[in-house]
Amino acid sequence: MHSVESFGTHDGPGIRMVVFLQGCKLKCLYCHNPDSIDMAGGKEYHIEELVQMAIKEKPYFGKNGGVTVSGGEPLLQAKELIPFFKRLKEEGINTNVDTNGRVLNHFTQELLDDYADLVMLDIKHMTEDGYQYLTGMPNKETTFNFAKYREASGKKMWLRYVLIPGITNKPELLHALGNYFKDYKTIEKIEIQPYHKLGVHKWEALGWEYQLKEARENTEEELQATVNILKDYFKKVKIN
């Protein structure tokens, strides 16, 4: 594990305990937790220890809250998440996975099919070149294959999309995003993540060069224009 956050309000429905797992195969240029990328970092926790932490916070979850696993990329540890989510379900706690969708093995499938109430899927870019530029890895189709699998299950999914001026906020990309997913029945909403530089100091602490220094934050007009485009394709569009 990388860290645990209590009372998270931007990581799924309601108030949530957010478990950030260590390790990710991508190295997104805008990553605000670059210290979670290295697979060798983090601290080991026993599953039951985490379950008991969630039980203590359960009174604050209310009707919609619960536990979200994020990262890093949590599905790199899908095998271990199965017994964790199973225990959470036994305690009546809602479960959510925040993922980039690159891992779709039989452990992931079991987790999604049997124990994940919600999946939040991060759409990096709508073109292969753009995906590789932002993440350092090829093959955007892994994310889309993941989305198809979740859609086929009939279970809830949210999309997330980081809006970077000049890179991901182009109207043609937003229309491509909408057109690709417009017929999906399981997508409850799409969350737009405005670009920010809150993690730059972490890159510097690691001795890494932050390559989006010239990128600026979104204007209110740009955010509204994005909503205006996407609202024609999705049931709900939210700016986080």
Rank of each mutant, 00 (worst) to 15 (best):
E110P: 01
L111F: 02
D113K: 15
D113Q: 15
D113H: 14
D113G: 09
D114V: 14
D114C: 14
D114W: 06
Y115W: 14
A116G: 07
A116I: 05
D117R: 04
L118G: 00
V119D: 01
M120V: 15
M120S: 14
L121V: 08
L121Q: 01
L121W: 02
D122W: 06
D122A: 12
I123W: 04
I123G: 04
I123A: 09
I123F: 07
K124T: 05
H125Y: 07
M126H: 06
T127F: 03
E128T: 08
D129I: 11
D129S: 12
D129E: 15
G130R: 02
Q132I: 05
Y133I: 08
L134C: 10
G136E: 05
G136A: 10
M137K: 15
P138A: 13
P138F: 11
K140G: 03
K140T: 09
E141Y: 09
E141C: 09
T143L: 11
F146I: 06
Y149F: 11
Y149S: 03
R150T: 08
R150M: 10
E151R: 04
A152P: 00
S153N: 10
G154P: 09
G154D: 13
G154H: 11
G154T: 12
K156I: 09
K156C: 12
K156T: 14
K156Y: 11
M157T: 04
W158H: 08
L159D: 00
L159F: 00
R160M: 13
R160T: 13
V162F: 03
L163C: 13
L163R: 00
I164M: 09
I164F: 05
P165T: 05
P165K: 00
P165A: 10
P165Q: 08
G166T: 10
G166P: 12
I167G: 06
T168L: 10
T168V: 12
T168W: 04
K170C: 04
E172I: 09
E172L: 07
E172Y: 12
L174H: 00
H175G: 09
H175R: 13
H175V: 14
A176S: 13
G178R: 01
G178S: 08
G178W: 02
Y180E: 04
Y180R: 11
Y180K: 10
F181L: 01
K182L: 07
T186L: 02
T186Q: 10
E188M: 06
E188I: 01
E188V: 07
E188H: 12
K189M: 13
E191D: 15
I192V: 14
Q193H: 12
P194V: 09
P194I: 07
H196V: 13
H196F: 10
K197V: 05
K197A: 06
K197P: 01
K197Y: 04
K197W: 01
L198I: 15
G199W: 03
